[in-house]
């Protein structure tokens, strides 16, 4: 079991009223799963994903990642955990504009204090695998949306995460580019055994996953 969520609640207080973002979420994710989270705007998809990625906190409930109780961990250990095991892909790519493709992919390794020759080897492998060797010295602004997202995925994968979290990874892409990214996710999931959780609006994209999770007003309405 990679992830286990038990009775997760998250709320914000506004003007005396408690407004629930997530209500009583119970979820188990096995190693190697490919889950698509669906639901209308404001249903809590992104919040759930952020909590899974430990970018956001929750107000109540237990979260076990790889058997470790995340809800009891200090910030320092939490960040070590996600640094080691989780990769993120965003709708807006979030590449660092001032870094080249190569440097963007290399950044997570820098924070993990990987030695220089090793970094070089890992990044080269990744560039090869994604067929973007020729673009390694370009800046994000010089790439198309699909290519940028490809770099985003490459960066998420460089530290060999167990879990890949993707928040509408194809939201800014056209259908052809979107399909390519989805194919890539599927391959990663099947060939490399990476667990994938993606948030999506599109039925077609959701179908790439092995399981669909539907949210409405902060509750899971179907698994």
């Amino acid at each position: 079991m990679l992830i286990e969520l038990k009775n997760i609640f998250k709320w914000v207080n506004s003007g005396g009223n408690r407004f629930f973002l997530l209500k009583d979420i119970n979820l188990k994710i096995e190693q190697g799963a490919f889950i698509s989270v669906m639901g209308p705007s404001g249903s809590g998809k992104s919040t759930l994903l952020n909590i899974l990625g430990m970018l956001d906190t929750f107000d109540e409930g237990d979260y076990y990642f790889n058997g470790q109780p995340v809800h009891q961990l200090k910030e320092k250990y939490r960040s070590r955990l996600y640094k080691e095991h989780i990769g993120f892909v965003f709708q807006a790519y979030h590449l660092i504009d001032e870094l080249t493709v190569y440097e963007n992919i290399e950044t997570p390794l820098l924070y993990k204090k990987v030695s220089s020759p090793e970094r070089k080897a890992l990044v080269s492998d990744m560039l090869d695998r994604f067929n973007i060797v020729g673009k390694k010295d370009l800046f994000p602004a010089q790439l198309s949306g699909g290519q940028q997202q490809l770099v985003g995925v490459a960066r998420a994968l460089i530290s060999k995460p167990k879990l890949l979290l993707a928040d509408e990874p194809t939201g800014n892409l056209n259908s052809k580019q979107g399909a390519e990214i989805m194919e890539l996710f599927k391959r990663l999931n099947q060939e490399d055994g990476v667990t994938v959780v993606q948030v999506t609006h599109s039925e077609k994209n959701a179908a790439y996953g092995s399981q669909i999770l539907e949210l409405l007003d902060g509750r899971i309405i179907s698994k």
Binding site: L55, F88, H94, Y111
Partner: peptide, 16 residues
């Protein structure tokens, strides 16, 4: 800010 956020997501700590 985005760069800061992204770097944090990629594992940068406060000191770095």
């Amino acid at each position: 800010l985005r760069e800061i956020g992204m770097r944090k997501t990629l594992g940068a700590n406060k000191f770095q």
